[in-house]
Write a protein that binds this DNA or RNA. Structure first.
Lengths: 201, 201
DNA sequence: AGTATTATTAACACCATGTCTATAATATAT
DNA sequence: ATATATTATAGACATGGTGTTAATAATACT
């Protein structure tokens, strides 16, 4: 599966130092104001060394964040399949989404900074597509064909995906006022039945 | 209301040229790759002149986009109040949102580039807050207190606002496959009743 | 008309970028 | 353990953008 052919420990160390340096700098300053110089200084490496591994700041950024998002998806994947034996149309929190919130909550500082927008859109777009993927498979398990949907499937997926994304940001901005399980439950309810208690006539 | 005390025609001209230059450059290149030099060259102005009006590229960007978003809100405001004599819980498209989609659709090239994320997050955040404001007032007209809501009002607002935002992006990315009225109708339905035809037990 | 404001021009120091060379340090294989 | 290959460092370089200054030209205002 992995194409890592035992890389040189020096390379591994260097890249890790650069990634850590960038992440720690992002938590303090504005991404756009961070220079390659800053990164290598924080990493206690020579500036030239940077260019032996990455073409520029964005390259390092992209690779670092992709790696972190892989951790997220791996942790969620370990929970099981999304559509697996679960009433997706109920209001019970789905384990997949519970785990998703758990993971994000455990690194809330980082995710808040990244999602808030001060950084690259790449990260946000990736998170969006991860969310939409889970939602898509959940939706497919409930409504295999488009018969039961009032609106085109593609739109529903984007609708719910964006809504989830936005509420996650709200959750992070407000210092996680609810547990991961509670958040998942709220979102399940909103996605399935809408915000109102009584069904409109 | 307005504090414009008849500014010098040279100032007006210069600022307009700079704004136009930036917008046109954004449509072609990547925002981050655009320099002050590029802007002034496109505007056929001296680079020093730029600094007589704006502190940096982001400053110009912020002011330009704020101006364009003001056009949007003005056009929507001319339609009337959001809560005005309308069954917000029905599935009929609300005139406010129809007009919103109309306006965005008429400048779809621009909005697509701006919202897609390659640019500043400032614009996207602003659009989000505009959307949320309309949704908030619509929601308040249906449910003045929190009794009829299954989830905290603040979350519902963010949920629907983000969902709308995401679907608008979908709409733009897919070259406006539906009319503004159709889009508004779809979103009203999703927001009120959720995606399913039959109510889950 | 004369005065005030604005745009231009040329020049400046500063800093980040990306690249190059030669040299030192470290891994790996024999 | 020694030789070889790979990687990190050091210093230096040209390039290009930034933001500022001072002097001059162009334009608006009264």
């Amino acid at each position: 599966m992995k194409k890592e052919k035992r890389l040189d420990p020096r390379v591994k160390r260097t890249r890790q130092l650069l990634k850590d340096a960038l992440i720690s700098l992002i938590m303090e300053n504005d991404y756009n104001l961070i220079t390659v110089r800053d990164i290598t200084e924080r990493a206690t490496l020579n500036r030239v060394t940077f260019y032996l591994h990455y073409s520029d700041k964005d390259d390092l950024m992209k690779q670092s964040t992709d790696e972190l998002l892989e951790e997220l998806t791996d942790s969620v994947a370990s929970i099981g399949e999304v559509s697996e034996s679960f009433d997706f149309r109920g209001t019970q929190p789905h384990p997949t989404f519970v785990q998703l919130f758990e993971q994000i909550g455990q690194h809330s500082d980082f995710y808040l900074v990244m999602l808030k927008g001060k950084v690259m859109p790449h990260f946000s777009l990736k998170v969006m597509s991860i969310l939409t993927e889970y939602i898509s498979s959940g939706l497919a398990s409930v409504e295999p064909d488009d018969q039961g949907l009032t609106v085109q499937r593609e739109i529903v997926e984007r609708y719910i995906g964006s809504a989830f994304f936005g509420v996650i940001m709200w959750w992070l901005e407000n210092d996680l006022p609810y547990t991961a399980k509670q958040m998942a439950a709220k979102l399940m309810r909103l996605a399935n039945k809408g915000p109102y208690k009584e069904i409109p006539s």
